[in-house]
Design a protein around this nucleic acid. Structure first.
Lengths: 331, 331
DNA sequence: AATCGGGCCTGAAACGTTTCAGTTCCCGTG
DNA sequence: CACGGGAACTGAAACGTTTCAGGCCCGATT
């Protein structure tokens, strides 16, 4: 593999000069610069980032660890983060924990060992061993889609209590009394908060709430939850799902069983992913500003890595209800 | 930042011993090992991967560069690749070119500078400057979702000619004569091949083909194409889209305009993403074995990096038609 | 008693850069 | 003409690891 000293020898200059051509072209005479550049081209020299980083002490990479890349919500978060990072000349590498603590730990350790500039983290749990070890490494990080005390780190989140309440109130207002909530893994704060929001909104009303827990936050878990819903008696007349993937699964189960939506079963999802509007019955959903979430988080992280004295901030966005056919009142 | 020599000093051993504790624990006496381990824990030592890699010469990371993470097809490819890489103790980092050559170039350069073990690449174009520069870097790579001559590199792909033909023949068999094909950017070989497959299948038939080009391969491009379809006169009775995202957009446009699917407009998509079955009208689609694609590509790459004498292979999978409501013949 | 061998550990070189204090050369100024 | 100063380049140290040749000690073998 060709290194900087091969280039130097071939061009008849010192190693330092080659480095200058690559990193501060203006300090080297134009004739020399061109000669070196053409040797670089000729030999196919590629700078070794490990050596560079070892010496320079800092990386040009920002890590992003998300819960589930299969959820378009997180893809949008990633897009937002990428936009902000590129504006500063940093690259984003995205890793997917798939809600598994062991993978989360493994990727966090990788980021720490790589000495990345910082990490945007959508954690499985804020109390785990993985995170504790990561904190000690001193790598700056910002929570995404998760509130956190500013004493620990900055965070960018959406108010899940409000989001859950928004959905529940909407179902009350459209006249439902037997309401189901299909929740994801309780280990996720998002899930706990959305459920809490639902309970708060329903408290004092006459509505009866059934909570169905499911293993995952994906379409097949939704199908499964849908089957359980169909078996209930009396059957709820409305269901709110902790995210759109679950809701699409439930919807599919209803359509498959010939249950009319929204007449026999109203459905509300969460995230307002692009596919929600294209569903069998267009889905009412709680919209989160995903891209903005990612962009803001990256900006916060960049600010903190540029100036370590800046204090942590907790940004909270407010979700918004998008009403579509799946809860439309019919006469 | 605490380094190996801080640990060595604190534990009263040499640097080499600390390194052995971390990398080959069995060669150090159990008492020493425990002492060093507790110092590591106490000081919060994290190995610096740059230095390690600089010295060891090889990285434990495999790169994956995909065309569009917003397309669930590529998320599944990533999952497959991750599975194979983890089995070998490697980490995958995923980057998203978003079909932009400049981003592709930037990420490829990053991978080369990082000296990653290898790269799985779903390229925008096989002839670009970016790729030529990358080739010269000597980083092993395998094409994903793209055929390539084995003289250059291994590749894992799905037969897009067959896929296009599959869809077109299905539309012929269900009695359509005015057929539209909504294609994505012609720079993508996948798009060119699928169109070619359609043309081949339709050649000699009485069917009339209209090709609509769209800017992107996403839902909003599909909406746009749908609007154009609605304005055509005479309007085609069936449309095949280069991927499911486009098809979902077209479907949304039809539903919005009150055009009945499949009675007035049959629709076929491509990829068979999870959302295809949950669409307003469940979508007929050409299924590709996405996960298998990713897994196979990663395995090929691992084999080539383990033994450089192994020759390149070109694996081609065969797509499969999944028929659903969007093309069901009604009486 | 001398020798051998194995277990455990040390010390230093090497990896490919960046950075910075010097050196050389030349031009302009007093 | 002497001098100062800037532009262009050089040479070597430093970054934090891994690796490997060797050294030491102790028990077993001849």
């Amino acid at each position: 593999m060709v290194g900087i000293k091969d280039v130097a020898k071939q061009a008849g200059v010192s190693i330092g000069t080659v480095s200058n051509v690559v990193n501060r072209p203006h300090v080297v005479a134009v004739a020399t610069r061109n000669r070196v550049l053409s040797v670089i081209e000729e030999l196919g020299y590629v700078r070794d980032e490990s050596a560079r980083q070892l010496r320079a002490g800092r990386s040009r990479i920002m890590g992003l660890l998300v819960l589930d890349l299969g959820n378009p919500f997180f893809v949008d978060v990633a897009r937002g983060a990428e936009q902000a990072a590129h504006a500063e000349g940093l690259n984003i590498v995205t890793c997917n924990s798939g809600q598994r603590s062991d993978l989360e730990a493994s990727y966090l350790a990788m980021f720490a060992e790589q000495r990345v500039r910082g990490v945007l983290l959508s954690p499985v749990a804020t109390s785990g061993e993985a995170l504790r070890a990561f904190r000690r490494s001193g790598t700056p990080y910002v929570f995404v889609d998760r509130k956190a005390p500013t004493s620990e780190a900055s965070s960018v989140a959406v108010d899940d209590l409000a989001g859950g309440a928004l959905a529940a109130r909407h179902l009350l207002e459209t006249g439902h009394h037997r309401i189901a909530f299909v929740n994801g893994p309780a280990i996720l704060a998002q899930c706990r908060d959305r459920e809490q929001g639902v309970r708060t909104a329903l408290a004092g009303s006459a509505a009866e709430l059934t909570v169905l827990d499911s293993i995952g936050l994906d379409v097949s878990s939704g199908l499964d939850a849908g089957a359980r819903l169909l078996g209930m008696s009396p059957r709820p007349t409305a269901v709110f799902c902790a995210n759109d993937l679950l809701a699409l699964g439930v919807l599919q189960a209803m359509v498959g069983a010939g249950v009319r939506v929204p007449d026999e079963m109203a459905i509300v999802g969460y995230d307002d992913i692009e596919f929600a509007g294209a569903a069998a019955v267009p889905l009412t959903s709680v919209r989160q500003p995903a891209r903005r979430l990612g962009r803001t988080a990256a900006e916060l992280l960049l600010a903190e890595t540029a100036d370590t004295t800046v204090e942590h901030r907790a940004v909270v966005f407010t979700p918004e209800l998008v009403v579509r056919e799946s809860t439309r009142v019919r006469r």
